[in-house]
Computed example of a mutant assay.
Amino acid sequence: MTLIALPLPGRSKARLAKSAALILPVAALALAAGTAYAGTDATFTTALTKFTGFLQGSGGKIITVLSLAAGLISLASGRFTLGQIAVPVGVGVGVGTGVPIVTSVITAVI
């Protein structure tokens, strides 16, 4: 059996120059970056209030009823799966309690 030795790729000056041209500006920007503060911006407060009000109010009830109706229609098709019951229940729980949970998590992180 004959072994063939393949040459290892060498580091040429052009390759080192190219790497330095990419790394040095990124390092300079990282060192010069200022501190970012989150949580003081109120740009989307109005949209967030309307959306959470919609999901916790009549919109959430409509979504839950539509999901329940889809589950009942699929049950009427004659095939029973657990998803036909679990999905409407999950949608109802998600709409009812999901918004406060997500809002509190985002507030805690920010």
Rank of each mutant, 00 (worst) to 15 (best):
M1H: 05
T2G: 04
T2S: 09
L6N: 06
P7E: 15
P7R: 10
L8N: 06
P9H: 08
P9V: 10
G10W: 03
R11H: 09
K13C: 04
A14I: 08
R15E: 15
L16F: 04
A17C: 04
S19K: 10
S19G: 06
A21W: 02
A21N: 02
A21E: 07
L24H: 00
P25L: 00
V26C: 07
V26M: 15
A27D: 00
L29Y: 09
L29C: 11
L29T: 05
L29D: 03
A33F: 08
A33N: 09
T35E: 14
T35I: 08
Y37I: 12
A38S: 12
A38I: 08
T40S: 13
F44M: 11
F44W: 14
T46P: 02
A47M: 12
L48M: 11
L48E: 09
K50Y: 15
F54T: 09
L55V: 14
L55C: 14
Q56C: 08
G57V: 01
S58L: 12
S58I: 11
G59V: 10
G59R: 01
G60S: 01
G60K: 01
G60E: 00
I63R: 01
I63D: 05
T64P: 02
L66E: 03
A69Q: 01
A69C: 10
A70E: 05
G71E: 03
L72R: 01
S74T: 08
A76G: 08
A76S: 15
S77P: 01
R79A: 14
R79I: 14
R79H: 13
T81V: 12
T81P: 02
T81H: 06
G83F: 04
A86G: 06
A86F: 05
A86L: 14
V89Q: 07
G90P: 05
G90Q: 11
G92C: 11
V93C: 04
V93A: 13
V95L: 15
G96K: 15
V102K: 04
T103W: 03
T103H: 04
V105Y: 02
I106E: 00
T107M: 00
